[in-house]
Design a protein around this nucleic acid. Sequence first.
DNA 1: CCCCAGGCGTCCA
DNA 2: TGGACGCATGGG
Length: 226
Amino acid sequence: MDDALGPQHWWPGESRFEIIVGAILTQSTSWTNVEKALGNLNRHDRLQARAIRAMTVGELAEMIRPSGYFRQKASRLMDLVQHLQRHGSLKKFFSRSTRVVRKELLSLNGIGPETADSILLYAGGHPVFVVDAYTRRIFSRHGWISAGADYEEFQRLFHCNLPRDAGLYNQYHALLVNVGKNFCRKSQALCSHCPLEVLLPGGRPLGIRTVVQRAESGSKFSQSSD
DNA sequence: CCCCAGGCGTCCA
DNA sequence: TGGACGCATGGG
């Protein structure tokens, strides 16, 4: 286990490798389904890179079936694991500059900006802000950024307004996920009980720091995970 | 029955 | 460059 030196993250997972696997499996999929897939892998003692490589993609696909898109994800996961192998340890893989590792992750099939950044932040401890559907929804609904802004544009908003700190990005993202899940839901947003209610459009513009501090002090779910 | 979930690649205008 | 679509299971 080389996760002893890894960051303390809220992202579920016992090891850096499990976090990486989870990042692929959770693409457009609820975490409960991902848990079933991870449970299958764990039960068969398959939550290590070596054990994954020893399987066929077909076997891997069957094991992760509950996470949905299982054929695609099996193939993506296998590609990633093969790639990681060439770098030796995960520690070596992540020890290079954020820019280099990110570019490399993005070059792999099935790894887009959010998955790459989740892996960088939660498995690698790199200071990159993860922009997900919750983040986009919360910030565009409040009028803080256009809904049509692209990934890099959203990310720049955070990188330019917050200290470059992995622990901070980790915590902020966790808070946004909680607000997104429990209040700023896709349909039927529960603004009346939301910690960000006073920041609805029309109010005085406030910085990101204020937004997140409010989420932190107001959310009853700030410590919940999975 | 419906809608939704912590995306990504491909295709096409 | 950007919008539609396929990928798929499981829960509410």
